[in-house]
Design a binder for these strands. Structure first.
Ligand SMILES: [Zn+2]
Ligand SMILES: [Zn+2]
Ligand SMILES: [Zn+2]
Ligand SMILES: [Zn+2]
Lengths: 163, 163
DNA sequence: ATTTTAAAAGAGAGTTATTCTCAATAAGAC
DNA sequence: GTCTTATTGAGAATAACTCTCTTTTAAAAT
């Protein structure tokens, strides 16, 4: 496990195996299914900084020979986000993206509000703020994201209509 | 104008009047309409920390005697968000909220992923990180939001089904 | 192993926030 | 006042996501 600073949130973000996933699911009276295991594996093996929408995940699963229904995909990513295994990202588009929630991959997003081009960046102090704030309120921290809305250099030059 | 630290982003976040809005619109070849002026006024006069969805804004406008169509409302808040006048918030529900984008009101959100209860908090260093990051990439900063996803104390006690 | 039970998957219908289309209107330039 | 074209309003269209219900199956009980 990778430890950054002294945040015990980071300590709890372990690398998930089928067994540890199973244990966490059972803790809540839920079950480990082949679908959940496959989806977890996809996210574990995704390149750093890569995120998937539900549709993209469905296609990727299909190319790897796993036919998991869209219903199950939507349910599973939502479930894993609520467990703190995945991060649910709002990248200023009309749909959500998901990525694994682990210290090594933890980063933030700078988004152009006009063309949606996204740049990822790391910042350690964001973690500290999130940890301190949630602790203070008695919340159990799952994820914290700094999202910067801005206009990229090329969009600063272009003028488009208001509609 | 309120100045926090030495961020020139904050310097550019002025209090909008009908005239300054008109000037910024004209700069881009757009027009100041009564609808846009009324909507700006609503957000200027909103209590600190209050945010509105498109539907809520529509109702509020109606009670004040302004019948502005939902189409125009959606277009206007999106426009003002892209201009940096409003902040577009994703509060983990199925719709967006908007609030004025001014230093005095600037804050962040701690959201329970289970019940969506939201706590607002302020943090000055987030502004600095957003300013530094966007500057470095040549982006023109509009807004930066720290969103913390967590489980609130009461939801930590309840166990619900996965579906 | 076999049975039992309820969680989960799959299929497809349903929901709804948001966007799109287009005719009518009006802001702003001259 | 006239002209140009951005904007409005009404409603249709879109599409991400959720819900419903039947079937399947994980995993506990026997
Ligand atoms: Zn990312
Ligand atoms: Zn851009
Ligand atoms: Zn707020
Ligand atoms: Zn809660």
């Amino acid at each position: 496990m990778i430890v950054i600073n002294d945040l015990n949130w980071v300590m709890s973000m372990s690398f998930y195996t089928a067994d540890s996933l199973k244990a966490e699911l059972h803790e809540r009276g839920w079950r480990l299914t082949p679908q959940r295991e496959v989806i977890l594996n996809i996210f574990q093996n995704l390149a750093a900084g890569k995120h998937l929408s539900a549709e993209e995940l469905c296609e990727l699963l299909h190319t790897e020979g796993h036919d998991i229904s869209l219903s199950t995909i939507y349910r599973t990513v939502k479930l894993m986000a609520r467990m703190g295994i995945l991060r649910e990202l709002e990248l200023a588009e009309d749909h959500k993206h998901y990525e694994i929630n682990q210290p090594y991959h933890h980063h933030h997003h700078l988004i152009c509000v006009k063309c949606n081009q996204t740049i990822e960046f790391k910042n350690e102090s964001v973690l500290k703020i999130g940890d301190k704030t949630s602790k203070k309120e008695g919340y159990h921290l799952l994820d914290c994201q700094l999202t910067i809305h801005a206009v990229c250099p090329s969009c600063q030059r272009s003028i488009v209509s208001a509609n």
